[in-house]
Design a protein around this nucleic acid. Structure first.
Length: 477
DNA sequence: TGAAATGTTGGGGCG
DNA sequence: ACGCCCCAACATTTC
């Protein structure tokens, strides 16, 4: 009687699961295990919203396993220690897990592999980070060539997702710790966890008459509309596999009714490739986790003003589009991508606060918080990353607001103080006369904060700060 | 996956 | 009729 362990980490699904498939193949019994790792759960880069989503997702996975004759074993502790105990208790001969590429995961898995029969399988991305490299074997640092290389690779698993194993038999007598009570919080997250919910979301995006994917290229930029796929939390925890998403993108491209629709679906595919790109970057250049990818921008003289940071975190900067986005994050654990770019540019360039502060705050509050994508996004915004926005590309929060929330619908939804403010003043309420402020019930400095910076001045200071860093690093212009 | 500063052009007002 | 100025509107350059 051979027993294998399926060590679940961020692959909370039964469909298209390479680790589960391998575990089932190599054993008569499979022991699905999730280990609550205090080093991760208590990290300052983890917050309640994501933990709740994870725990609820595990409940769904447990039910899905039980429906197929299996069980979910939950343990709590240091993974190496817990796996040793499990092997001793069960006599398991192998541990199968989906490979993960964050610095913590790699260090943890390397250590475990030295002592235990750990088999890591590639499934987090469609292509393993080592597979998308230049002819000389070196990793890509620029997105576009990476994308071309990625697309030119043989697509062997097209339309051949791994099926759910027919029967999952878990040996008796192995105890699970009880599910911890989720941290009490009053968030109503907009995402329901679980694999079946993930499929529903995917189908809603790509299937039916005139599915949203065919309008994605334009709609995704509108912050007042849910024009994005809304799949990030599911991809984060593997309730949906990257392969499932990519296959759906290709299917939509093939079935597109016209050129625009096809290009729109391709735009979404490109976003999925961005996700793979940042996982690839974090794998090959783990130093990005703690410092700027670009050596020439490691000496930016940050101001790091605590009061400004607090105002940003709480959505009290006096810039409606920034505050609306930050409050959306606090209340739902999600922020529209356009909002992420706007608030990131604002934190880094307008407030001159270290992008790592923003990165940490996002990780604490995002349900979809992923070390690779989040770090990549922040370094992109700060201009410090691979293939990043040029340092001089500074978003004007007012123009962004007018462009992507033209009627102020999004702002009014999240910033009730501005409920009665009309017309273009919704984007810049400080321009209202004091009479109008009284009339709309939005007196600056009383009902809603006055702007904490002057964008035009802040912009110039940011350019100076970045110029200083370049100067100091000795890089030539 | 910007925006501001600067440059150019052309129509219209006007002496 | 003509030159001059103003200034949108658009284009290009710069950050």
């Amino acid at each position: 009687m051979r027993i294998s362990i399926w060590w679940i980490r961020r692959d909370l699904r039964l469909t298209d699961n390479i680790a589960l498939t391998a575990a089932v193949k190599s054993g008569d019994h499979v022991l699905p295990v999730f280990i609550l790792d205090p080093a991760l759960l208590n990290s300052s880069y983890v917050g309640n919203k994501r933990v709740v989503f994870l725990l609820e997702g595990l409940r769904h996975l447990k039910a899905d396993l039980e429906a197929r004759g299996g069980r979910l074993i939950l343990r709590e502790g240091q993974p190496l220690k817990e796996l040793k105990i499990l092997i001793e208790e069960s006599g398991a001969e192998g541990i199968y897990a989906e490979e993960d590429f964050s610095p913590y995961a790699k260090q943890r898995d390397n250590q475990i592999a030295e002592e235990l029969p750990l088999h890591l399988l590639s499934g987090l991305t469609v292509y393993h980070p080592s597979a998308v490299v230049k002819v000389d074997g070196s990793p890509y640092k620029i997105y576009t060539p990476f994308q071309h290389a990625w697309k030119s690779l043989p697509f062997s698993r097209r339309n051949s997702l791994l099926p759910i194993p027919e029967r999952i038999s878990t040996p008796p007598g192995i105890e699970s710790v009880p599910f911890p009570d989720p941290p009490t919080l009053a968030i109503k997250t907009m995402f329901s966890p679980g694999e079946s919910q993930a499929s529903l979301h995917l189908n809603a995006f790509v299937e039916g008459d005139d599915p949203p994917i065919y309008r994605y290229a334009v709609q995704r930029d509108r912050i007042d509309t849910l024009g994005t796929s809304q799949l990030s939390p599911y991809l984060r925890f593997g309730m949906l596999s990257a392969q499932q998403a990519v296959n759906a993108a290709y299917t939509a491209i093939d079935a597109a009714p016209d050129q625009d629709a096809s290009e729109s679906a391709q735009t979404w595919l490109h976003e999925l490739i961005w996700r793979e790109f940042y996982i690839h970057i974090l794998d090959h250049y783990p130093h990005v986790r703690t410092q700027s990818f670009r050596p020439s921008l490691r000496a930016i003289p940050w101001e790091n003003n605590d009061r400004d940071f607090t105002a940003w975190c709480e959505g009290q900067t006096g810039f409606p589009i920034v505050d609306a986005s930050m409050r959306q994050l606090l209340q739902t654990g999600w922020m529209h991508n356009r909002g992420r770019m706007i608030v990131a540019s604002f934190l880094v360039k307008d407030l001159l606060i270290d992008w790592r502060w923003g990165e940490r705050w996002f990780m604490q509050h995002l349900v979809d918080g992923d070390p690779a994508s989040n770090n990549g996004g922040w370094q992109w915004s700060a201009g410090t990353g691979t293939d990043a926005a040029p340092y001089f590309r500074i978003f004007n929060p007012i123009l962004q607001s007018k462009k992507f929330d033209p009627h102020g619908k999004f702002i009014r939804n999240w910033v009730p103080e501005l409920q009665s403010v009309t017309g273009k003043f919704i984007h810049e309420p400080w321009k209202m006369s004091s009479e109008m402020q009284k009339k709309t019930g939005c007196v600056l400095g009383v009902d809603y904060p006055a702007p904490i910076v002057d964008h035009a001045i802040a912009r110039k200071q940011a350019l100076e700060a970045y110029a200083f860093a370049k100067e100091k690093s000795g890089s030539r212009k």
